[in-house]
Nucleic acid binder design. Structure first.
Lengths: 244, 244
DNA sequence: CGTGACTTTGATCAACTTCAAGCTACGTGG
DNA sequence: CCACGTAGCTTGAAGTTGATCAAAGTCACG
């Protein structure tokens, strides 16, 4: 399916502008590439790291996608987020050196390993890298806040719409289509992420489909009316548009 | 009520072990204190920073408490979190240099201002400070994940119990009682934070009170049965305890 | 072609919201 | 010192949304 892991090479990686090297000079990127360990390849459901485990690395998604989740006291999962190429995983372990969540591959995927100790040293040497680390951490925090917003005060319909738009934007940033994409996660994962049941997710997707806003064919989503989907997420923008 | 802002002095601050100076050597703490700007004093509802505003500082709570929230597209608030003394605010602006949330004082409160530029430089010089920054950011992320967990799959009763326990632990860490404390936030803020309505919050508090688990007198909460409150949050711990 | 995982659809039910009214504490001015 | 007004909180009754329970449908893969 894929050859043995190759030595990572940030300067040649097409994701470098979305990933850790963003904003660094050419020679600094090379320095960074020097500490990146060989890529690790995972099959579907392969565990990248497990809650409670010791953290020695951060991980950058090289290809494929991942799902992170927390096991609560009852042993039930709460999906915390999905990771696409260029995104950094394992940040929640920076607090105590142990992962407070688990992370599994949703499909055949690969990651670049970033040893924390060497990354920390390099941050001291390269101010731009430290800046970028801060940006990435700030982004993770801001994105978690969006999730809190999503789960706090949104209807099932709004949650689904937000979820689809969120993916649309991220695929778009990766250079893929923002209207046609393939969900790598199961309905169960979506439901769990959105704080809903699979039945509700299924019904809401069916409803959006019935209204012609999207077309659903298994895991393939086709967004027919991006504007309408946006209106669902921002009801009051409706009025604003009416006056504009 | 309080005298004019005084020059911050981390080495003498009783919060230093909970705040940014944690883990630093004596002389490093002094260096840090050197960049901390004068404290800023805010009255109830005073705005520390506003969503969209440019970020030049991080803020550490010196006294009092704060509430951060996001205004969504409809103009409705979602409370993201509450901050107690020693906690760092303004981290979500690290992404783009602009605040993605607003922050207001819940009571007469004071903060220490940490200029980002000087903090960054100092991080390069003091590895321990950079470590602590990472820890603080990791903690923020982990705590946001707990909030996602809370909002995703919890009943109203479990949310209230979790909220009370969360405050109990934080007050305890500050050296205050973990069973008797004063809520600085209104019911509206609690409801909004937990993704509920004020009526539901009121009813759940009344129910817990009726069962003798807590006593509510306006904003004063008395936890009578901490173990029972914990059981509400971790239903299956019930069974585990039964076998132990 | 059959098995199992995943998904969809339908009917019923419970939890939480909404709407409405009354209560409590607190501050202000007469 | 007390009447009044207001903001915040509580309580009750009715209404919705999404969960739960149950069954059938679809797809992938051996």
């Amino acid at each position: 399916m894929e050859s043995a892991p190759v030595k990572a090479s940030c300067p040649d990686c097409r994701l470098s502008e979305l990933c850790l090297p963003y904003g660094l000079h050419r020679d600094e990127v090379k320095q960074l590439a020097g500490i990146v360990k060989n890529q690790q390849l995972l099959q579907t459901d392969g565990v990248l790291y497990a809650q409670g485990g010791k953290s020695l690395h951060l991980y950058a998604v090289k290809s494929g996608s991942f799902r992170s989740f927390i096991l609560n006291a009852d042993g039930l999962e709460q999906t915390i987020g999905f990771y696409l190429p260029g995104e950094i995983m394992g940040l929640d372990a920076l607090q105590h050196g142990r992962f407070s969540s688990s992370c599994v591959a949703l499909e055949t995927s690969s990651v670049c390993e970033l040893p924390l100790s060497r990354l920390n040293s390099l941050c001291s040497e390269i101010p731009g890298l430290q800046m970028q680390m801060m940006r990435i951490l700030g982004k993770e925090i801001a994105s978690d806040h969006d999730k809190i917003l999503l789960l706090g005060h949104r209807t099932a319909r709004e949650r689904i719409a937000t979820f689809l738009l969120m993916l649309s934007r991220r695929f778009s940033a990766l250079g893929f289509s923002n209207t046609v994409f393939n969900l790598s996660m199961r309905r169960q994962d979506i439901a769990n992420f959105l704080g809903l049941t699979i039945e509700t997710v299924s019904r809401q997707l069916a409803e959006l489909s019935r209204q012609g806003i999207i077309t659903v064919k298994q895991r393939v989503i086709h967004i027919n009316d991006l504007a309408m989907l946006t209106l669902i997420v921002e009801p009051c923008a409706n009025q604003q548009q009416a006056t504009a």
